[in-house]
Design a protein around this nucleic acid. Structure first.
Ligand SMILES: [Mn+2]
Ligand SMILES: [Mn+2]
Ligand SMILES: [Mn+2]
Ligand SMILES: [Mn+2]
Lengths: 218, 218
DNA sequence: ACAAATTTTTAGATTTGACTAAAATTTTTT
DNA sequence: AAAAAATTTTAGTCAAATCTAAAAATTTGT
């Protein structure tokens, strides 16, 4: 598989939300930062290779084989992200671009040993689950912070918006993965939240709360 | 720079033995596993980009800029090799192929932090010196262990005597290719050596030491 | 010195992945 | 149910990196 083919497969996977969804040519073109006509050409090739199911004008889905390939790339991407944060002191808003390159390195042993070196992590620095070698990954029970009931507590496991400005905000406010967040109160008027994090009470807007994923403890 | 251009530059560097030597089209073709005609084309391109000095039919040398690029690639290659051996439990004969891929990853921060993570190593698992960020590095030389000065360290790169008894001895004493050996002291009386290998102190006879090749710096 | 052998370069073709412009198809409006 | 709009595909180019075959330059052998 070429680097370009791998990028297409990964994008089709993400646009298909994991598995089923059929994906449009235009959507792929936008993500790939290329033209729809180029996408048509590539899809034809991927289809001939058995990586995608394709009928002209009817969108595209990953084949079983294509899904396997996609999960292997996602696995590599997320393991490298963990490596960069845990071992090389990168912060979570710096890792994606480098992982985009590292995910294409071809060596089964490399990724197995990297996994071991990192202690077989289950989630990446953005809270996304890391597929196992065989392509399974446990569905984490995510809930957006603004949907967490008052009086409940949860673990911060990820973000919906992973843009640098948002990640910077979290960093500045010392909100990080693994942190426990307790919802003290919710303001009806604007949906802003009063939360307790590391024994400190802070107030966050609905906009922030609706972009933070928690895993609810019970 | 494309991946292919980087490979050409690296090969021209190695064939030119570090710096001066002018390199022939045929030699490059052989190393690149391609045809001389393809090499001619690529050299023309590298010349236009100012990476090499080139006169038709007269061979090619790296420009000052090209040398800088070459050293940066060699640095990345060797740092990744150290990483694979030191952190991921690869053996010295498994790392080259993977490093050939990793050396093309583009991120200055990545390589700086990797260097730091590894403790700023001076030599790679094959005993070759690692250029500094600014492109300086020490020359490495091959020496029989009994000719290595006290206080020096080197990588075991080969044997002079490859008879079964000798290899058995090495195996029994856990001395293997790729191991780093530090010469602690030398006994004047019989020429026997006190060495440190994998943090263990052992004593070996002159007969053993005069049949083991090390690669040392400077 | 000069013919033969070798090395190197050019000419022309191929493959991959992309592009523009135009045609075909599907979807949305009226 | 057309007409209009949007999406998707095809047709025809292009650039990068490669190839084969042939021409040009250099080196070698007598
Ligand atoms: Mn990422
Ligand atoms: Mn991630
Ligand atoms: Mn190597
Ligand atoms: Mn090496």
């Amino acid at each position: 598989m070429t680097l370009s083919e791998e990028d297409y497969i990964k994008i089709i996977y993400h646009l298909g939300k994991g598995e089923q969804g059929t994906v449009s040519t235009n959507a792929i073109a936008e993500k790939m930062e290329t033209k729809p006509s180029s996408v048509s050409d590539m899809i034809k090739k991927l289809s001939e290779k058995g990586l995608v199911n394709y009928k002209k004008y009817q969108g595209v889905t990953l084949s079983e084989y294509g899904l396997k390939v996609a999960l292997s790339i996602v696995r590599k991407h997320r393991l490298w992200e963990v490596f960069l944060v845990e071992k090389l002191e990168f912060s979570w808003d710096e890792v994606h671009e480098v992982a985009e390159q590292l995910e294409h390195i071809k060596s089964e042993k490399l990724i197995d040993m990297l996994d071991k070196h990192l202690g077989f992590p289950q989630i990446d620095p953005h809270g996304d689950p890391i597929p196992s070698k065989s392509g399974e990954f446990k569905k984490s029970i995510k809930r957006l912070l603004n949907e967490v009931p008052i009086g409940k507590e949860g673990i911060c496991i990820g973000v919906k918006d992973s843009s640098p400005p948002f990640l910077k905000f979290l960093d500045k406010n010392k909100i990080a993965l693994g942190d426990s967040i307790f919802v003290v109160d919710k303001e009806e008027f604007d949906g802003s939240l009063h939360i307790k994090i590391r024994d400190i009470d802070i107030r966050i807007s609905d906009q922030i709360a609706s972009n933070l994923y928690l895993r609810i403890i019970e």
